[in-house]
Simulated assay, not measured.
Amino acid sequence: MKFVSGEILTEDGFQKGYLGFQRNKIVEVGKGSCPEKPVAKGLIVPTFVNMHTHLGDSFIKYKNIELPRNIEKLVAPPNGLKYKLLKEASENELIEGIEKSIAFMLKSGTSTFCDFREGGLNGICHLKTAIDLWNISSVILSRPEKLDYDKNEIDLLLRNSDGIGLSSIFDWNYSEMMEIAKQTKRKNKIFAIHASERIRENIDSILDLKPDFLVHMVKASESDLICVKENNIPVVLCPRSNAFFGLKPNIDLMEKIGVNILLGTDNAMLSNPSILDEIRYLIKNFKAFEIPEILYKTTYAARKALNLECGILGSNSKADFVVLDDKTLQPLYVSV
């Protein structure tokens, strides 16, 4: 049996202690001194959950293309450069790119990711093929191939994914987006959208879709954020991706209002999919969070938002943890 020791992150904060584990299972949780020399000492936290990825565009980062720092020109469907490159890419190129991103996530302690999967059913299949041989969990939010509502297509997507993740209401005919949202909810699946990323969008129209969570909200007003808080809707921030486009979320205001903030890494062509790197960027460039709070948000709070198992780091639970240096937050030991 191996041991790690230090400060263990629980739902009630950090507690001194140690974990004993073997065969990918925690078999002992103790307080006080570790019975044997630990393989690592530091902050012991559950593996991370990346709440927002677009892994399908991973291959683009290896093309050495200068990407436009304009949201519409780069990522807006259907004519953004990203979509042109996705259409031109081979299946092998797409899958190899996704696998590289998965390897990067696992190495940095991320065990679960929530992907907004472009490309309809083919996009789902590409992602499932890529993750097949990797010890990683995914929450796949699919989307139609075109910006149109087709009941049969949505039924097919929902049978093969965990829900629907759409671009903003600005991109869609609103009545068709509403039909997709309603159909997703009838199947008890997740519905999420990008919101107010480059321009402020109507918060009532957004909330009427009854999303499970929103992504970005960079241009949201104070009253918008209050509405989001009152409706208990989490907001997933991707500050490194925002910075690429010259944007910056008002995290201080979100924190003041009490918005449930979670973290994602967004397009893999722009930012590596490491939640740890996102955390370090956040701590360096924003003053809103203490380290224990942001570690909680990227572990326990993210799992709750996706209705995942939160009974972790206990005796007989799976050994899904990371040991971090308490000063640099560099991973010292990754169990996955």
Rank of each mutant, 00 (worst) to 15 (best):
K2R: 14
F3H: 12
L9C: 02
G30N: 14
P38A: 10
P38K: 06
V45S: 02
T47V: 10
N50W: 02
M51Y: 01
M51W: 00
I60C: 11
K63G: 10
I65Y: 15
N70A: 12
V75F: 11
G80N: 14
K84P: 04
L85M: 11
S90V: 05
K100D: 07
T112G: 03
F113D: 11
L121H: 03
L141R: 04
L141C: 10
D148A: 09
L158R: 02
G165V: 04
N173F: 05
M178G: 00
I180H: 01
I180S: 03
K182S: 11
Q183R: 15
T184I: 10
K187D: 15
S196R: 04
E201H: 01
I203D: 08
I206L: 13
L207V: 02
D208E: 15
P211Q: 06
V218R: 00
S221V: 04
L225M: 14
I226A: 09
V228S: 02
V228C: 03
P234N: 10
G264W: 01
L282F: 13
K284C: 09
K287V: 04
Y300H: 01
I312L: 04
S315R: 14
N316G: 02
K318G: 07
K318S: 12
L324K: 07
T328L: 08
S335R: 05
